[in-house]
Amino acid sequence: MAESELAQVKQGSVWLQGITRALPVMLGYLTVGFAYGVLAQEAGLSLFNGVLMSVIVFAGSAQLIGAGMIGLGMHPLSIIATTFIVNLRHLLMSAAIAPRLREDNRPWPPAQLTLFGLQLTDETFALHSSSFAQGGLPRSTYFISNAFSQASWVIGSAMGMLAGSLLGDLRPLGLDFVLSAMFIALIFMQLQSHRQLLIAMLAGVLSLALAAGGLRQWNVIVATLLAATVAVIAEELTCRRT
C-alpha cells in the first residue's frame, strides 16, 4: 500500500517536472504557433492543412517559410526542397544528442528513439541538452515535455488560423519578431563557455555574409559546419600549446 502510494507520488512528480520544464517552450510555442496559424490562414491553407503541418512536420521556421511559399503559389517540389534544407540542421542536433539517449550502457529502445526524434526541435533540443549535460532526468520526463510542447504548438496554430481572419493587420503586435527573440533565448540557454559564444558569433557573421553574398537557404548549414570546424581546430591548437 505504502509502496504503491510512493510510486504514485513519483509518477505525479515526473508529470509535474516534465510540464514545468516545458513551460517556457509551451508559452513560446503558443505564441509562435499562433503567428504561424495567422500566416497559414493568410496563405490560403485550409484549417485541416494548417493544423496537419503542425502535427506531422512540427518545425517552426520551416512551417513559417513553407506556409509563405504555399501562399506565393510556389511549386511543391521547391517548397519540399527548401523544407529539407531548412530542417537539415536537425541532423546535427540529433547527432549531438544521440550519445546521451542511453541508460545502463544500452541505447533506448528503437520505438522510443523514433518518438524522441519525431519531436526533436530547436527548442526541445535546447531544453533537453542542458538537462543531459547536468546528468539527466527520468526518461518519461522528456516524453512528457515533448508531448506538451507539441500540443501547445498545435493548439497555438489552430487558434492563429481561427483568429487570423478576425484580426486584420498584425504587424503592430510585433509577432514577426517572435522567432528571432526565441533564437536569442535558445542561444543563451545553450551557452556554457566563452568559446561557444565566440563560435556562435562567428557562425552568425559567416551566415550573414553568405546570405548577403547570395547563398540563401544554404547559409545556415555552411556557416555551422565551418564554425564548428574552426572551434575544434582552435581547441586542438590551444591544447597542443599548453
Binding site: S61, R89, L92, M93, A95, A96, P99, D122, F125, A126, S129, L179, S180, F183, I184, L186, I187, Q190, L191, Q196, L197, I199, A200, M201, L202, A203, G204, V205, L206, S207, L208, A211, A212, N219, V220, A223, T224, A227, A228, T229, A231, V232, E235
Partner: peptide, 22 residues
C-alpha cells in the same frame, strides 16, 4: 563529439543573424 558540441549554438546564431540584419 567535441565538434558536435558547438553545433547547437552555431546553428541558432546562423539563423538569427540574417533574420535580424537582413
Amino acid at each position: 563529439a567535441r565538434w558536435l558540441s558547438y553545433v547547437p549554438v552555431a546553428v541558432l546564431s546562423a539563423m538569427l543573424f540574417p533574420a535580424l540584419l537582413m
